[in-house]
Every structure is written in C-alpha cells, then in structure tokens.
C-alpha cells in the first residue's frame, strides 16, 4: 500500500466515498457532497459562460474593438435581469424572444438537413451499397427498420392490415433499439464506476 500524499487526491477520494455512502442510505455525508457539487458546478458554469460569452462575445467587441452594434446585445442581455422584478418582468420577453426565435429559425434548415434529409439519404445509400451479401442484407434490414419505425409513429391511420403488420415490425426494431441503448447505458455507467474504483485503489491507496 502506497497512500497518496497529494491533498487533491485525498479531497477527491473523500468526496467519492461520500457519494458512494448513498448506497447504504441517504446520510449527511452524501448530502454534504451533493451540495458541494451543486455549488461548485454552478460556480464553474457561471465563470465559464461569464468568460466565454459575456467577456469574449460582448465586452471585447464593445469596449476593446468599439463595435457599437453590441450595445443592442448588452441591452438585450441586461433586460434578462428584469425577470427578477415581477412588475417589469415582461421586458425579459425581448431577449427570450430573440433567443428562442434565433434557435427556432436556425433549427429549421439545419434540423431538417441533419435529422431528416441526411438520415433518409444514409439509409437509402447504404441500401444500394454494393458490398458483401451480408452488408446488403443488413442495409436492407436497416432500410425496412427505418420505414417500419416511422409507420409505427404514424397515428393518422388505424394500424390494421399491411399497415398494422409493418407497424408491428417497427415495434420489434424499437424494442431491440431500446434494449441495446439500455445495455449500452448500463455499461457506460459501469465503466464510470470502474474508473472511480480504479482511482480509489490506484491513485489514492496505491494498490494498483
């Protein structure tokens, strides 16, 4: 055993153990670690965005480069604070409207392109791919899967006859997909757990 002499490693190890103590039951040590995490995370993101957004994207163009257009941006940003004053909170609708509408406008072409057109294109091109027989069979299966999943989510017609048959195939694909995603998530969490145990046994206690 070769205990670490680094105070940072000790702090991290104590916090890790405090979080894991929740496996026994909800206890003050866990709640302490939980609140430390909440406070520190909030502080971390606040500083990150204050620097990368407010300083770099507002302060620098406005004060260092003298771009007066950014006065509008500063006004919109400051109007967000009216949210804290109930009688004037309607003023915060302007920055919110800007933010939401810009996001909505951006998502129409880009969302359609990446989520709809690209996905359809990839499914169809793979289907026509001249690879091995197994690749082609798999690609055909993927093509049928995408179509049948879409049919399953089409609720404007009753799921009967051929339509019902394909929507049932859609359920099969969905269940395999959910099972696979679930298994993948479980394994990623276990990987994190192994990482924490390796940290405790290796970096902290020096067993590894």
């Amino acid at each position: 055993m070769n205990l670490s002499g680094d105070i940072g490693i000790w702090v991290a190890a104590i916090l890790t153990l405090a979080v894991f103590s929740f496996l026994w039951k909800d206890n003050p040590l866990f709640r302490l670690a939980e609140h430390i995490l909440v406070g520190v995370s909030a502080g971390y993101y606040l500083v990150q965005y204050a620097y990368s957004a407010i300083y770099k994207k507002l302060y620098v163009p406005l004060f260092d480069q003298g771009n007066l257009l950014f006065i509008g941006c500063a006004i919109l940003g400051l109007l967000v604070f009216t949210r804290l004053v109930p009688r004037k909170s309607w003023l915060s609708r302007y920055p919110i409207a800007f933010y939401v509408a810009a996001g909505a406008g951006y998502s129409i072409p880009s969302g359609l392109q990446t989520r709809v057109v690209k996905q359809m294109q990839t499914s169809m091109l793979n289907f026509l791919d001249q690879g091995s027989l197994w690749t082609n069979v798999s690609a055909f299966l993927l093509f049928v899967g995408v179509i049948s999943v879409l049919l399953y989510f089409y609720f404007s017609a009753e799921h009967r006859g051929a339509f019902g048959f394909f929507s049932k195939i859609g359920i099969v694909f969905l269940m395999i997909g959910f099972g696979a995603s679930f298994g993948y998530t479980v394994m990623s969490r276990i990987t994190l757990l192994i990482g924490r145990l390796q940290f405790l046994m290796g970096e902290w206690l020096g067993f590894l």
Binding site: R115, V116, Q119, F143, S148, V149, F173, I176, S181
Partner: peptide
C-alpha cells in the same frame, strides 16, 4: 448497435426532426 438499433434511432430522429 449498427443495424437494428440504428434503424430505430433513425426512425425516432426523423420524427424528432
């Protein structure tokens, strides 16, 4: 993960889009 899972995800993604 590459085929049935991708098919399900693509179907959902197109719907989400």
């Amino acid at each position: 993960l590459d085929y049935p899972n991708t098919a399900a995800k693509r179907g959902i993604l197109i719907g989400v889009g």
